[in-house]
Amino acid sequence: MSDYNFAYLDEQTKRMIRRAILKGLAIPGYQVPFASREMPMPYGWGTGGVQVSAAVLTPDDTFKVIDQGADDTTNAVSIRRFFEKTADVAVTEATGEASVIQTRHRIPEQDLRADQILVYQVPIPEPLRFLEPSEVETRKMHALEEYGLMHVKLYEDISQHGAIATSYAYPVKVEGRYVMDPSPIPKFDNPKLNMAGIQLFGAGREQRIYAVPPYTDVVSLDFEDYPFEASKADHACDLCGATDSYLDELIVDDSGKRMFMCSDTDYCCSRRKAGHIGAQGVPYAEDAA
């Protein structure tokens, strides 16, 4: 602990990030440029989220990290340990006990409260980037609220596939103004972007921070005749039997046998602890893991 400044970053860097966070909250959905620092992990491993977490964490916080919903993957474990070491925070895997949750590509199934903060790791913050490679142009498009190209993209989805095929990083419009990339969360999670907690987005390599305050109007883009649909695998979780959670599909043997299970490990685990058993599940107590 004494070898590092609190939460790893130096104070001036944290002030710079904190100013960007405040402006981000004041202009929901707008990407605030910030001077992203080198972190002790490669770009693409959550350096943006880590810098945002470092700027908001206090020693009184309880910190949770999920990677695609799971608490026990390499990325989640290493980031959790990083802040355990440098910020001396308590850590948890339980969504309800955490005050700050850093996430890669999921929103927890359990609704967040007003006193919780969700920090997203964002790879490409610019929703228009794959349609228009020039930053000068996309900045102009945001300034002029010129989002026709995004609707053309969704329309082309429909003309080619018969439905909007975009299934993750599904573009949203925030407070009727900025089109925003909600990071690569499945579109199943999009309705949860209207939440009571504070949502902060950090993109380290792309040097952008943006935010969605609580109860902000977040609308997934769609068409009147092709309305937005928060889709998931049409199945129940094979471990806990949940029908309302986002599912991962796993191939479990050489003959291609499939299994669906909750992507949110804490949600699945707490359901199993409460006695829910899925089609291929076993009672929680008998499970050695």
Partner: peptide
Amino acid sequence: EAPTDSARAFRQIMTAMAQ
């Protein structure tokens, strides 16, 4: 204690701006 005092203060300021 600048690092922790400012961290606690920022959380209050950020919460105020977000709510």
